[in-house]
Amino acid sequence: MSDRLRGKMPEKGWKELPIRGLIIEPGNSVNYETGSWRALRPIINLEKCPHCMFCWLFCPDGSIIVKNSQVTGVDLRYCKGCGICAVECPRQVITMVEEAEVAKETNVW
């Protein structure tokens, strides 16, 4: 298996692993960043965002960042770029942009 698929977790010997094939760190998939799958990036025009939460509700990946009941952006570490948020936004304030186009403008999230 490739290093990329192995993710960040170090390879442990059998004596170092918990019994029963257990994973004892809940939700540690946050260390596995699926954002690399993305071809299209959602850009939210936050000024026009009605904060209806539909994008948050319909995101399969829980990648819409919400603070104090306000949408504040997209967590690009996980967003796979499906585009559902853009279709379901009632005000159409989310646009899907080719990753290649935005790659130059770094880390805007």
Partner: peptide, 19 residues
């Protein structure tokens, strides 16, 4: 919370059987 029964492939299955 613990996760029981996660899938293993080539990288961990062997180590999980050893005990």
């Amino acid at each position: 919370p613990v996760t029981y029964g996660a899938a293993d492939f080539t990288d961990y299955y062997f180590e999980h059987k050893r005990p």
